[in-house]
């Protein structure tokens, strides 16, 4: 008679397309609703943040230069993979305290949201770009271009939908990002990293850390190689900290309520710069 030993999952970080443990060697235990031990999670340090930002910076120019169509294809593939693993995600959300029906609804909404932003990749420049009338012999046009590397604080809950809603518009617009997963719902964030990694998303475009906001937020806010911060469901104190330190290198900052997660092309535009070109035209 043999008793099978079940294989428990090790939840790690997602940095530069790889799944390393935290360099600090620290872990925190995650407990379920009834206080039962669910998993051990990496407690990322500021050096993990640094590694993630370096990876994101390295990946950014290449990601932004991919065709809009390809970026859409990759996001759509992420939606496909998420759909295929919907059961696993629903189980994880339930482990973290959600009801069965709300877990399933959340996974469906996350898939739909990925499809939504996948569709926008090759359309937002058409909608938000413009040809501008000018009083000189120039062809004058404006196009949105990605801001660069964005730090992301998704809402505490919902764990999966919140992360997707925060990250997808950034990535759709050619930015790369470093997200700190919700400390209360981190499991689905780490598993979502596996979905991204299986979707031909180049390493470094999305980096996901697990850890404590109070540890990661201050170095993220002061980090001079982060070009913007998208934060959901933040306290007034957190907003003040981000706002103050963003001035160091003039970061773009966007604050949203924790439940403002609907698909919205203006979310893409939050982290776009408008570039205007004056092109001389021959006048006959």
């Amino acid at each position: 008679m043999s008793t099978r030993i079940s294989v428990l999952k090790t939840y790690k970080l997602y940095i530069g397309g790889q799944f390393p443990r935290t360099e600090s060697g620290r872990a925190t235990a995650l407990s379920g609703r009834k206080g039962q031990h669910i998993a051990n999670l990496c407690r990322a340090s500021r050096k993990d943040l640094r590694n993630a930002v370096v990876a994101a910076r390295k990946a950014q120019p290449n990601w932004a230069s991919k065709s809009a169509y390809l970026r859409g294809q990759i996001l759509y593939r992420a939606a496909e993979m998420l759909e295929g693993r919907a059961g696993q995600f629903a189980d994880e959300l339930r482990l973290q305290g959600d009801s069965a029906s709300s877990a399933r609804k959340e996974v469906d909404a996350a898939v739909d949201l990925l499809v939504h932003y996948a569709g926008w990749t090759d359309k937002y420049t058409q909608v938000f770009g413009s040809i501008n009338p000018v009083a000189s012999p120039h062809f004058n046009f404006s196009v949105p271009e990605p801001t660069g590397v964005i730090g992301v604080l998704p809402p505490q809950a919902p764990g999966l939908l919140g992360l997707v809603a925060a990250v997808a518009p950034l990535v759709a617009g050619g930015n790369t990002c470093v997200a700190l997963a919700s400390p209360t719902h981190p499991l689905s964030a780490v598993t979502f990293a596996e979905v991204l990694n299986d979707s031909d998303l180049p390493g470094g475009v999305v980096n996901i850390l697990t850890g404590l906001r109070e540890e990661i937020l201050p170095p993220m806010a002061t980090y001079k190689d982060i070009d913007g911060i998208a934060a959901y469901g933040t306290t007034a104190a957190e907003q003040a900290l981000i706002g103050e330190n963003a001035a160091l290198n003039v970061k773009r900052v966007a604050f949203h309520p924790a439940d403002a997660l609907a698909g919205d092309p203006y979310r893409i535009m939050e982290f776009q710069e408008i570039k205007t070109t004056w092109h001389p035209v021959a006048v006959g």
């Binding site: 500021r46 943040l49 640094r50 930002v53 170095p219 980090y223 001079k224 190689d225 160091l248 290198n249």
Partner: peptide, 9 residues
């Protein structure tokens, strides 16, 4: 300075 730097600077 206590802040992580950017290579751009």
């Amino acid at each position: 300075t206590g802040h992580y730097q950017s290579p751009h600077d």
